[in-house]
Amino acid sequence: MFNVIFIVTAMSLIMTVVGAVIAGEYVNEILSNYFLIWTRNFCATFFINIILAEPISRFVATKVNNLFNE
């Protein structure tokens, strides 16, 4: 669980800025609304990671590990 929280926190912190820059927002807008936007991004990323990404990556890692252990 620590790994999920650490990855989601780092990813949402970085992607909040990167996504806003790609969307064409100005730096002042990003900084003034950063914590509001980051909170929303963190919640969305956390649930997507737990529901989709983690089970898929665990399944693939298990299959690859079993392939090399045979």
Rank of each mutant, 00 (worst) to 15 (best):
M1C: 04
F2E: 05
F2T: 06
F2K: 08
N3L: 10
N3Q: 08
N3S: 10
V4M: 07
V4S: 09
I5A: 11
I5G: 01
I5D: 00
F6C: 04
V8M: 02
T9F: 14
T9S: 10
A10K: 07
M11H: 06
M11N: 09
M11K: 00
M11L: 12
M11W: 09
M11F: 15
L13I: 11
I14K: 04
I14C: 04
M15Y: 11
M15I: 05
T16G: 06
T16V: 05
V17P: 00
V18P: 00
V18I: 15
V18T: 04
G19K: 06
A20N: 13
V21L: 15
V21W: 02
V21I: 14
V21Y: 05
I22D: 05
I22E: 07
A23F: 10
A23I: 03
A23W: 06
E25M: 11
V27Y: 11
V27I: 14
N28D: 15
N28P: 00
N28E: 14
E29V: 02
I30S: 06
I30P: 01
I30W: 03
L31F: 07
S32Y: 07
N33W: 05
N33E: 06
N33A: 10
N33D: 08
N33C: 00
Y34D: 04
F35Y: 11
F35T: 06
F35P: 00
L36N: 13
I37G: 00
I37Q: 10
I37D: 06
I37W: 09
T39V: 06
R40A: 14
R40D: 12
R40I: 15
R40W: 12
R40Y: 13
F42L: 13
F42P: 03
F42K: 02
C43R: 09
C43Y: 02
A44V: 12
A44L: 13
A44W: 13
A44Q: 08
T45Y: 07
T45R: 03
T45W: 03
F47Q: 09
F47G: 01
F47D: 01
F47T: 12
I48L: 12
I48G: 08
I48Q: 10
I48P: 00
I48T: 12
I48M: 11
N49I: 01
I50Y: 02
I50M: 10
I50L: 14
I51W: 08
L52G: 01
A53E: 02
A53V: 08
E54I: 07
E54D: 07
E54N: 05
E54P: 00
E54A: 04
P55K: 03
P55R: 05
P55V: 01
I56M: 05
I56R: 01
S57F: 13
S57D: 05
R58G: 01
R58L: 11
R58I: 09
F59G: 05
F59H: 11
F59Q: 09
V60E: 03
V60G: 02
V60M: 06
A61D: 14
A61W: 10
A61H: 10
A61P: 01
A61Y: 11
K63S: 07
V64D: 05
N65Q: 13
N65T: 14
N66D: 15
L67H: 12
L67C: 08
F68D: 08
F68R: 13
N69W: 12
N69L: 15
E70R: 15
E70Q: 13
